[in-house]
Design a protein around this nucleic acid. Sequence first.
DNA 1: GTTTAGGCTTAG
Length: 768
Amino acid sequence: MPVQKVNDSSDLDAKVPSHLQRTSITSLTMTSEPSHRCVKATVVHKGPVISCAQKDGIEMLRAEIKEEDPLQRTAEHTSINVIFFGTLAKDFSQSARQGDVVLLADFTIKKSPSFLRDKLHPCQLEMDGKDDFVYVCPSAGPSHGPSSSEAKYTYVPLNDLKPRTVVNVYGVVTFFKQPFPSKGSDYCSTLKITDQSDFKVGCNIFSKKLEDHPILFRVGDIIRLHRFKTDVFRDSMSLLNTFGWSTVTFDGTTDSPVVPRTSSKSFHFGESDIRTVQELRQWAANQSWISNDLKVSLSTVKPGMYFDLTCQLLAKAVMDSRCILLKVWDGTKCKHPLLNVAVASDALEGESTIVKDRMNLTANVLVYDNHLEMARELKPGTFLQFYNLHALLQRAPDQQPDQSEHLSFHLHGGTSYGRGLRSLPAESPALQSLKSVLEKHVDLDEYDEVNDGTLLEIWYTPPEAVDAEADTGPSYTVRTCEHNTRRLTLARVKRSTPPLSCHVRARVKKYKPQQLYQCLKLFCSNCKTMEDVPDDSAVAKVFRESAKDSQPCDEQWAATSSASSREPGRTISMHISRDMVGESTHMQLIFIEGTTLDEICVLSRDYKNLVPVRSVNSRMTLMDLTAPFLFSGDKRYYGCKQCSLNTFQNPVFTGVETWDEQAVAQALGVQLMQYRLLIQFELEDQTDTLEALLWENTERFFHVSAVDASGSQDLQDKIQTIMDTIQPPDSSLEERPWLDLCLSVYTVKDDDRNKVCYQITNTEIKEE
DNA sequence: GTTTAGGCTTAG
């Protein structure tokens, strides 16, 4: 069903079919049953139609809709993202404008992948156009028609104000205080406004109700005053609210939507208001008092400064009856070390800031006295505006006098210079740059559960890097993979959904096995059995028992020569296949019987392939597969006990040019076990630790072949040397080199449960 | 039927 238009907001309500129930956006949850619900709200943002590559190029559009929220202070999640897909996206793009009221039904409720950053709503609505239901009522003011009441109000320029008259005025706010309790019965708002006449007029507003006070966020906001009384005070004109008064405010950003902010349920608002606001914005943008007003962030703040800070609340704690600690960040790194006010974790409300503390991203703000009333209401995650915040260098209680002082922030008591704080609604234009900076730190969100990569690209372009701190300095490894995925923190990797390939930068906290020779494993590629390489004492025992009381075996297919050993009763015999006699290969494969392990080791220096055998009832038999079935130079090869076939009775030795371990194993019916190197690392970065295996990639990682290492002390020493560099014995974390790693995240079945595993792939040690 | 504040730094 395409998007339908109606002319009046009240018509929308008439369009609601009887089986549908109006639901407030605030009350929507993941478990809401969407099928019989509809929402009515105003479009506050409409994005472009985007073609989504990860969804077969389907077109999509994100819009943000907002429900009437008279107070704009405490109600949470009054806005929600709506994603339109396919033709509905295009249709909506053409039919709806910012400010329009829409009625939506038959949507799907999904988890919002952007909630942790935009704080709009934990859910989002998705509409694919099949049975969905979209009505649009073009904006013309929330409760009145556009032209019928035009010119109802006249606005007096500020230079034309006459004393003791009641007027309506428009102005740009050049100074304001958040409402504060007066000595009388009311709250008082104090502000100063100006307009194109450049006259500045002071204004006081008294009201018992906080919600009736103008909603002002920053200097440059625009205010409309109805029914204000003029008077002269200290040779200047001033304004005071009088009976029937009202105020409406607007953001002062040029080109941003003209959205009236008011608690009033019914107010006049028409085309001429939009024009007036736009003209004032344009005029103010060229005034030095606003355009020179550079924003101060944590990265630019200087000690001693009083400044306004736009930020997000991370955590809070009550210090005492006159002080609350607010831990905030704005995504920028402070140039001075930031003071960390230690608070017991059970006294702290909100997320842990440890990771951000370490990166000098967390500002500790001490809020005093009259501001506690406001601070007490704040919830972690809220966006905040501080006014006249004081940056102060101070020493931490446990700090030595010779150490550099740390920067703390105080919101002192009182309201001088507009001192105060307030929360900002998530959709405020004043927050757009803050949000985009915070998004670059998405990997730091310790509780971020964004896994749905498909919808993510509609919100942000991934940042190039995670963090400058870990970026600097060389890596002891190099990635060899072709793919160009984002680098993630370990905390983020742990929250990802397998399968996944990703890049991390980490250090090795620990590794197993600490006795590195134990990392050499035997692996059967057939049955996937992995076992340790048997130690010499176990192998020697097999040899001793095989040689005990044995008579040389007598096989038709073999030519045999025997010699007495030093021990009485033990004969050493060598057998060569008759098939091979006369061929050039005949000395390449020799069966040997009756030796000790030591003896066969000595003999293997002179013969290429020695197969130890024993005699059972005069028939030649392979030894127990605990022992190697083949000695070849300094290498020993083992067979899999489960998978080796017993075809030794009638071995075939023809047709092989060169005997190697594969050919020997095949001729003997042995399933050759491969040498592998297995190491388990405990990786660590600023966010978390994670156990990752080095398994399939080990040989490339060390530039060492496992089978070569099995017979070479030099190569085993090489691995030890590399490990001692990655994780020097008794080293502190800072002494260990960073490693750029490619990680593979996958699941394995473990007792019928899926277990997530991490393996280092496509990564090599840098060798000088 | 109309007091309050009328900007202009805490001092932790």
